[in-house]
Amino acid sequence: CHSECLGNCSQPDDPTKCVACRNFYLDGRCVETCPPPYYHFQDWRCVNFSFCQDLHHKCKNSRRQGCHQYVIHNNKCIPECPSGYTMNSSNLLCTPCLGPCPKVCHLLEGEKTIDSVTSAQELRGCTVINGSLIINIRGGNNLAAELEANLGLIEEISGYLKIRRSYALVSLSFFRKLRLIRGETLEIGNYSFYALDNQNLRQLWDWSKHNLTITQGKLFFHYNPKLCLSEIHKMEEVSGTKGRQERNDIALKTNGDQASCENELLKFSYIRTSFDKILLRWEPYWPPDFRDLLGFMLFYKEAPYQNVTEFDGQDACGSNSWTVVDIDPPLRSNDPKSQNHPGWLMRGLKPWTQYAIFVKTLVTFSDERRTYGAKSDIIYVQTDATNPSVPLDPISVSNSSSQIILKWKPPSDPNGNITHYLVFWERQAEDSELFELDYCLKGLKLPSRTWSPPFESEDSQKHNQSEYEDSAGECCSCPKTDSQILKELEESSFRKTFEDYLHNVVFVPRKT
């Protein structure tokens, strides 16, 4: 048989008469490798580009789960590009990614509803959504962080984005990388972005840091009482949809009607710091009717980097990364020049730590249904340095008659930039024990000054392991946590139920 035959053949030295091919099969003959313009397919066939392209389009058009959109890589027609490569849609070739590779997620039936953290986790790592997304989240724990972890990498949506009755959302900033909504599939009414009845939605994105392009379709905003109209108009300008909307697409009466839409800028007039305090004062603000001013709200939190936005980490279910302080308005003076500047002394802060701070007014709604208010920009203030805590785990070892090696770990709280350490030492008198000992005694162990690591005695271990207080009263049991108490109650309830079950099964009433 021919060298490319495997198993047997019907005619000697003829690659077209093989029972099976050793390498690849091409047009009725066995070959060692697939010549151009053919590609290896499933490690035994040679196919042309049209064959591989037909497989790709067949799966793409069917949208069946589990099928493969075949691509070409290293002269092979394979189910998908290997790690580190992405497909070129024009020629199906796998090309190296520039940075992290995109991950295209194809949605069944063309859309997916995100109504819980669990459903959001199914899209973790996706960068391109081939379909439409509907966000409908009523509640949950730590929602802002969970949504950002699972949806934060999405850069492109081919269909539309719909935010509907998501009472738990305060902001859409968890879509931190969303840059493009194509609108290839539109919501009824030709809408590519749809926001309806979101009672706590206050911000779409921080438009000073976020760009969003909507290729096709219109915007729809109705019944978002805490979303200011200025935020919607800003989205029109940034996304390129200005002029597409009709009169009733953006409701003037049901958007922002319960919001404090600040239209003035508060400026800080005085800032002073110490290692654990920050004193702030800002310019006074009074609405047209000074009785509408209820006070100020001061927001602050630790910020290692200057990239904080107002609604980071917030949701309507209680999660809030900001510390909020309510401040009463100052006494009002008739003389504008003698107006008191409101302020606040922030206490209990960490030394040498940068804080993000902003302040906003708290006002009631005027009778004319106009909203007044003022808010400052987010500023960054760093507390002063102070003395560091003591170095940890000092170790001293003498390696000769004239040297001592000293080692330690950095302090747990540096409280500033540590530039150097101060080492103090003092000579001590020799131990009298060394002169009084009889060095001729056998088995004498000389006193040693070398360091030995501390260890816990058996008594201390027994005390720590004991669940009861000892007789001397030195140790006591740790208080039980809520989960331990709940577990004990469940076990007790189970024992009672099981005992009742045994009584009912074992003891049967005697027939009379």
Score class of each variant (00 low, 15 high):
104 V>L: 08
104 V>E: 09
105 C>N: 01
107 L>N: 09
107 L>I: 06
107 L>E: 04
108 L>Q: 06
111 E>V: 12
112 K>Q: 04
113 T>V: 10
115 D>S: 07
117 V>F: 13
118 T>H: 13
119 S>R: 04
119 S>A: 03
120 A>M: 08
120 A>D: 01
120 A>N: 02
121 Q>W: 02
121 Q>A: 06
121 Q>H: 14
122 E>P: 05
123 L>R: 01
123 L>P: 01
127 T>L: 07
131 G>M: 01
131 G>P: 00
131 G>C: 01
132 S>H: 05
132 S>D: 05
133 L>D: 00
133 L>K: 01
133 L>A: 02
133 L>T: 01
133 L>N: 00
134 I>H: 01
135 I>A: 02
135 I>N: 00
138 R>Q: 15
138 R>E: 04
138 R>A: 08
142 N>I: 00
143 L>S: 15
144 A>T: 03
144 A>G: 12
144 A>F: 15
146 E>F: 04
146 E>M: 06
148 E>C: 05
148 E>R: 11
150 N>P: 05
150 N>M: 07
151 L>Q: 00
151 L>P: 00
152 G>W: 10
152 G>D: 01
153 L>M: 13
154 I>R: 00
154 I>P: 00
155 E>A: 05
158 S>W: 12
160 Y>M: 14
160 Y>E: 03
161 L>I: 14
161 L>D: 00
163 I>Y: 01
164 R>C: 04
164 R>T: 07
166 S>D: 03
167 Y>H: 04
169 L>P: 07
170 V>G: 14
171 S>G: 13
172 L>K: 00
172 L>N: 01
173 S>H: 13
173 S>T: 08
174 F>P: 06
174 F>R: 01
175 F>L: 10
175 F>R: 00
177 K>A: 06
177 K>G: 06
180 L>C: 12
180 L>E: 11
180 L>G: 06
180 L>V: 10
183 G>V: 01
183 G>Y: 02
183 G>P: 02
185 T>C: 02
185 T>Q: 09
186 L>W: 09
186 L>M: 11
186 L>F: 11
187 E>Q: 07
187 E>N: 12
187 E>K: 14
187 E>P: 09
188 I>P: 04
188 I>D: 03
191 Y>K: 06
191 Y>V: 05
192 S>C: 02
192 S>A: 03
193 F>H: 01
195 A>N: 12
195 A>K: 00
195 A>F: 13
196 L>R: 09
198 N>T: 02
199 Q>L: 11
201 L>R: 00
201 L>T: 02
203 Q>M: 10
204 L>F: 10
208 S>Y: 08
208 S>T: 10
208 S>M: 07
209 K>V: 15
211 N>R: 10
211 N>E: 10
211 N>T: 11
213 T>H: 15
213 T>G: 11
213 T>I: 13
216 Q>H: 11
216 Q>R: 06
220 F>S: 12
221 F>W: 02
222 H>R: 09
222 H>Y: 03
222 H>P: 00
223 Y>C: 07
223 Y>V: 11
225 P>S: 06
226 K>W: 15
226 K>L: 06
227 L>R: 00
228 C>A: 04
228 C>R: 04
230 S>L: 08
230 S>T: 07
231 E>K: 03
232 I>M: 08
234 K>Q: 12
234 K>W: 07
234 K>V: 13
235 M>R: 00
236 E>S: 10
239 S>I: 13
239 S>E: 01
240 G>Q: 15
241 T>N: 11
241 T>A: 13
241 T>K: 12
242 K>L: 14
245 Q>L: 06
245 Q>V: 07
247 R>N: 04
248 N>W: 12
248 N>C: 13
248 N>V: 09
250 I>D: 13
251 A>D: 03
252 L>I: 10
253 K>W: 14
253 K>N: 09
253 K>I: 11
254 T>P: 06
256 G>S: 08
256 G>H: 03
257 D>A: 15
257 D>K: 14
258 Q>T: 13
259 A>E: 04
260 S>V: 09
262 E>P: 06
262 E>A: 05
263 N>K: 10
263 N>L: 04
264 E>H: 06
265 L>R: 14
266 L>V: 03
267 K>N: 10
269 S>V: 10
271 I>Y: 06
271 I>D: 00
273 T>S: 14
275 F>Y: 05
275 F>N: 05
280 L>K: 00
281 R>F: 15
281 R>P: 00
283 E>S: 08
283 E>G: 15
284 P>E: 15
285 Y>L: 14
287 P>S: 06
287 P>N: 02
287 P>E: 07
288 P>D: 04
289 D>E: 03
289 D>L: 03
289 D>Y: 06
289 D>M: 03
290 F>P: 14
292 D>V: 04
292 D>R: 05
292 D>H: 15
293 L>Y: 03
293 L>P: 06
293 L>G: 05
297 M>V: 03
298 L>I: 06
298 L>T: 02
300 Y>T: 03
301 K>R: 12
302 E>I: 07
304 P>I: 09
304 P>N: 12
306 Q>F: 03
307 N>H: 13
309 T>L: 15
311 F>P: 11
312 D>R: 13
312 D>P: 11
313 G>H: 14
313 G>A: 09
314 Q>Y: 02
314 Q>R: 15
314 Q>E: 14
315 D>W: 03
317 C>R: 00
317 C>M: 10
319 S>A: 06
322 W>D: 01
322 W>T: 02
323 T>K: 10
324 V>S: 08
324 V>I: 04
328 D>R: 09
329 P>H: 02
330 P>T: 05
331 L>D: 14
331 L>G: 15
331 L>S: 11
331 L>P: 03
332 R>N: 04
333 S>R: 09
334 N>L: 04
334 N>Y: 08
335 D>Y: 15
335 D>P: 03
335 D>A: 12
336 P>K: 04
337 K>W: 06
338 S>F: 10
338 S>K: 11
339 Q>H: 12
339 Q>F: 13
340 N>H: 10
340 N>S: 08
340 N>W: 13
342 P>D: 08
345 L>Q: 12
346 M>F: 05
347 R>K: 14
347 R>P: 12
350 K>L: 11
350 K>T: 06
350 K>Q: 14
350 K>A: 09
352 W>I: 15
352 W>K: 14
354 Q>Y: 10
354 Q>N: 09
354 Q>W: 12
355 Y>T: 00
356 A>Y: 00
357 I>F: 01
358 F>T: 04
360 K>F: 02
361 T>H: 09
365 F>Q: 08
366 S>R: 12
367 D>T: 10
368 E>K: 14
368 E>W: 15
369 R>G: 04
369 R>T: 10
373 G>L: 03
376 S>D: 00
376 S>R: 00
379 I>V: 13
382 Q>T: 11
383 T>I: 00
386 T>F: 13
387 N>Y: 03
388 P>E: 07
388 P>A: 05
389 S>C: 04
389 S>T: 13
390 V>H: 15
391 P>T: 04
392 L>K: 05
393 D>F: 15
394 P>S: 12
395 I>P: 01
396 S>Y: 03
397 V>L: 06
398 S>L: 02
398 S>G: 14
399 N>K: 08
399 N>Y: 07
400 S>V: 07
400 S>H: 13
402 S>D: 10
403 Q>V: 03
403 Q>F: 05
407 K>W: 12
409 K>P: 04
409 K>M: 04
410 P>R: 07
411 P>W: 01
